[in-house]
């Protein structure tokens, strides 16, 4: 019989579940987020209550064993939201605690290789958002962008945008997960609010955005069109670099 630990989907929740695995010396255990859990008759299910103290102990414990960078990797992998990724993280943490030396480069362990690969994927998706966010200047002077990243990477992006746009107010909103990060010229905060996708409809553009905003988008489209060399056309490469699902957020690909 397997034990299934159900947690609330937060990172602290996951660490609390992992704390329980060690505390109760559980074997044959599997961790799932509540939204993915399905009851079955054969396995015992247990609901984990998120406990920041327990989470902190696991997190601090890790810092004694692995580098800051490696710890960040675990967090990144968590943000991928891949349904079974919790078990890979559990395996990674178990091996870390049971080994004298660092196991982070043991790539012949398929799960450690997997962790490495997923964290790189998350990095790439994060980098994509650094690239594909397109701010539009709203009537109330905020540079505003909507995104729908495949992974929940927004928390990773805030540092980059804070450093770069230190002198303008900005808000990046994740339409899929219904939250955003907002910079008020002092610091970045996570804001939960409901923004309808209506802000992206072109007929409503002038209710939300300035006239110059529309003009600059047009200039950008002109620039984009004229920097292409038609005799080198390579649509396969083009689409590989900007997959079609992102086009709706890029003014240069919307006509």
């Amino acid at each position: 019989m397997n034990t299934i630990l159900i947690y609330d989907g937060s990172f602290d929740g996951l660490l609390s579940a992992i704390f329980n695995v060690f505390e109760l010396r559980l074997t044959n255990v599997c961790i799932k987020r509540r939204e993915y859990s399905q009851q079955n008759f054969f396995d015992a299910e247990e609901e984990i209550i998120t406990d920041t103290e327990k989470a902190k102990r696991v997190w601090m414990g890790l810092s004694k064993k692995i580098s800051q960078q490696e710890r960040q990797k675990i967090y990144k992998v968590f943000l991928s939201e891949i349904p079974t990724i919790e078990n890979a993280i559990l395996h990674f943490i178990k091996r870390t605690f049971s080994s004298e030396v660092s196991i982070e480069n043991d790539y012949s362990d398929p799960i450690i290789l997997e962790i490495d690969k997923v964290s790189k994927k998350v990095d790439r998706k994060k980098h994509r958002m650094d690239a594909f966010v397109r701010f539009r200047l709203t009537n109330d002077g905020i540079y505003f962008a909507t995104i729908e990243p495949d992974f929940n990477v927004l928390p990773l992006n805030s540092e980059h945008f804070k450093k770069r746009y230190a002198d303008q107010k900005w808000l990046i909103y994740d339409l899929k997960r219904k939250y955003g990060i907002y910079y008020n010229l002092q610091n970045v905060a996570i804001v939960e609010l409901e923004i309808s996708s209506e802000v992206n409809s072109s007929t409503k553009a002038l209710t939300y955005f300035t006239v110059d905003e529309i003009n600059f988008q047009e200039l950008w489209r002109i620039y984009f069109k004229n920097s292409n060399i038609p005799s080198r056309k390579n649509m396969r490469l083009h689409i590989k670099h900007i997959p079609k699902r992102y086009w709706k957020y890029l003014p240069e690909k919307r006509f």
């Binding site: 650094d130 690239a131 980059h160 984009f224 292409n228 060399i229 390579n234 490469l237």
Partner: peptide
Amino acid sequence: GMGICHSYTEDGRCV
């Protein structure tokens, strides 16, 4: 930081 390619033209070159 590292360089960022914000877009790609139809010839596959980065912008």
